[in-house]
Nucleic acid binder design. Structure first.
Lengths: 136, 136
DNA sequence: TTACTTGTGTAATAATATAACGCCAAAGTT
DNA sequence: AACTTTGGCGTTATATTATTACACAAGTAA
């Protein structure tokens, strides 16, 4: 799997949604995206959700389950790679994406030893980032 | 942290909610719990959510972020323990709780090296359990 | 007594997500 | 060309999940 292959061709709506997530530089809810894109003619949540489905499928956007929000993959021009993990600061909202290969591999060992066919892994760490704990 | 300490005293509502989750033997949404407990006088979602908040705080119930559902901790009489992970079968809905200590420790290493104060870890594996992949 | 805390009941509403419909354009046939 | 298939799109309505706000009751600490 190439970590930085070129984008698939995006439709207009997909490009708009991806653009707003990239510009935001952090997570947005579907409805926040909708509001940002009303000036571009968006009118209904489904326009956002449909685009997000595709972008997530392409690996260009990640869904943060514990926030019900979405974030652009931190790899520029990313078109899909392995499982990512997220450290989410509850103070400032900052989200750091990382790839804990060893931990993921241990989790995969667990699933394989039980005959569990793994299709998707969610790893989300909630807490306080360095900046925010210093600043108190 | 004791893994099987005795319950805190539960209020009536908390005991009812915990009971329905235990009886279910699997995840339930808050509204599914509400429907189960209508015969016990429950009338509003908040009664369920308030009880769930406490039960999660006590560590007796886990929230499954990727399902927006709740499940009784698989340790009988559990009153809180370390981070758990969940393997969720998308075919049959079965949820297996486990404790991948090494993986969790690697994730904690990552956070510590970045000065990230970790407060809560979510690990959820989606896929197909052994039974369901055999059965096709 | 007062004040404070915790749990409760209720109504209303907010926030997140999907179903169902029909239209259109591109691409691949026959 | 006509026909079909596919994917995306727009719209309305609705379903699902979660919270805000307000009032009350019981316990307990001062």
């Amino acid at each position: 799997m190439t970590a930085h292959a070129s984008h698939p061709e995006l439709t207009k709506n997909q490009a708009l949604v991806f653009g707003s997530l990239s510009d935001a530089g952090g997570p947005l809810t579907a409805y926040a995206i909708l509001d940002l894109l009303r000036e571009n003619g968006f009118r209904a949540p489904l326009q956002v959700y449909r685009a997000l489905d595709k972008l997530v499928e392409y690996g260009m956007v990640h869904r943060l389950e514990s926030l019900n929000a979405f974030v652009a993959c931190s790899h520029k021009g990313c078109s899909g790679h392995g499982t990512a993990a997220f450290a989410i600061c509850e103070k400032c909202g900052d989200v750091r994406e990382f790839t804990p290969d060893e931990a993921i591999s241990l989790l995969r060992n667990w699933t394989e030893s039980r005959g569990f066919q793994l299709s998707r892994t969610t790893i989300e760490l909630r807490g306080t980032c360095k900046n925010c704990s210093v600043a108190n």
